[in-house]
């Protein structure tokens, strides 16, 4: 949540990820430098490989790209697309900031929701959008996620959710904080109805989203190398005045400490999610 944002990991939340923007090379083709293997990779090659470098590094991915990658062709039906945050606190500069980001990202808010099918099995799905204020959760994100879980509970659908977030959106103050409680209550009702929720944590999943619906799934998967944590690494360094262990808050570290079920590379996610849905089909019938 925002507290953890106090000082953020370098080049992650604030500067739009660990990756630099694509650079146009002499050949005329845009290339992207990989922060892991340090090679310049043609953007077309990355796009064809779901934004995964040949070395295995997972670049960030747009919410809509993810949904297309995971779901059956033409099965996605978007919901709550028009939900947008106002500026309830009259927070200085917020209205302008959001308008600029809306134009640049072509999204109304930091999460895309709807229903879709994976190998013919229907589910409710959400994917958060890193390019929209680093997936921060304000009233609109909270309202959309809550509505999706309520819809899924009513129509007895499993929920699959991809998280990426810097935490609660501070420009909406307490209203953002309360979305953590609101979404958690909706997850609880969906869960108590005997329904499945699978979360896939992507880079970065932090703060108020980690401390609410990201960590409340029945099965929690994560992408390789994703930052997953509550407090920001730099604020922890400053608070504790000690060096952070190697790989601190990486998904492999979080797995080793028992807080996620499995790390699944992008190439295997569709099959993995399909298998999980298949094994929970019984859980979707009314008792």
């Amino acid at each position: 949540m925002a507290l953890m944002n106090f000082l953020k990991p370098k080049n992650q939340l604030e500067e739009g990820g660990r990756t630099s923007a694509p650079v146009l090379r002499d050949t005329g083709e845009p290339e992207q430098n990989c922060p892991n293997c340090h090679k310049d990779i043609p953007l077309s090659r990355l796009l064809a490989n779901h934004m995964v470098c040949p070395c295995g590094h997972h670049f960030r991915m747009k919410a809509r790209q993810r949904i297309l990658m995971i779901t059956d062709r033409s099965s996605f039906r978007e919901m709550y697309a028009s939900v947008k945050a106002d500026n309830p606190l009259d927070f200085p500069g917020y209205t302008e900031k959001v308008e600029t980001i809306r134009t640049a990202s072509s999204e109304n808010e930091a999460v895309v929701c709807g229903t879709a099918a994976i190998d013919g099995r229907k589910c409710a799905i959400f994917a958060m959008e890193a390019s929209f204020m680093m997936g921060s959760m304000g009233s609109a994100v909270g309202e959309k996620i809550t509505s999706l879980f309520e819809y899924a509970a009513e129509y007895r659908l499993p929920v699959i959710g991809f998280t990426v977030s810097g935490g609660a959106r501070m420009q909406e103050g307490l209203l953002s904080l309360m979305q953590m409680a609101k979404t958690s209550a909706a997850v609880k009702r969906h869960s108590d109805a005997g329904l499945l929720y699978v979360a896939v944590l992507t880079d970065p999943t932090t703060g108020g989203v980690t401390a609410s619906f990201a960590m409340e799934a029945d099965i929690i998967l994560a992408e390789p190398g994703a930052t997953v944590g509550f407090a920001g690494a730099r604020v922890i360094e400053q608070t504790t005045k000690s060096a952070l262990p190697d790989g601190f808050q990486k998904s492999e570290f979080v797995l080793a400490h028992g807080f996620i079920d499995s790390i699944v590379p992008r190439s295997g996610q569709r099959n993995c999610l399909s298998e999980i849905l298949k094994m929970h089909e019984g859980g979707q019938s009314d008792e």
């Binding site: 028009s82 939900v83 947008k84 304000g138 909406e172 209203l175 209550a185």
Partner: peptide, 11 residues
Amino acid sequence: FRRIGVSAVTK
């Protein structure tokens, strides 16, 4: 908790 923030969004 459900109603908090509802009036802060436009549909």
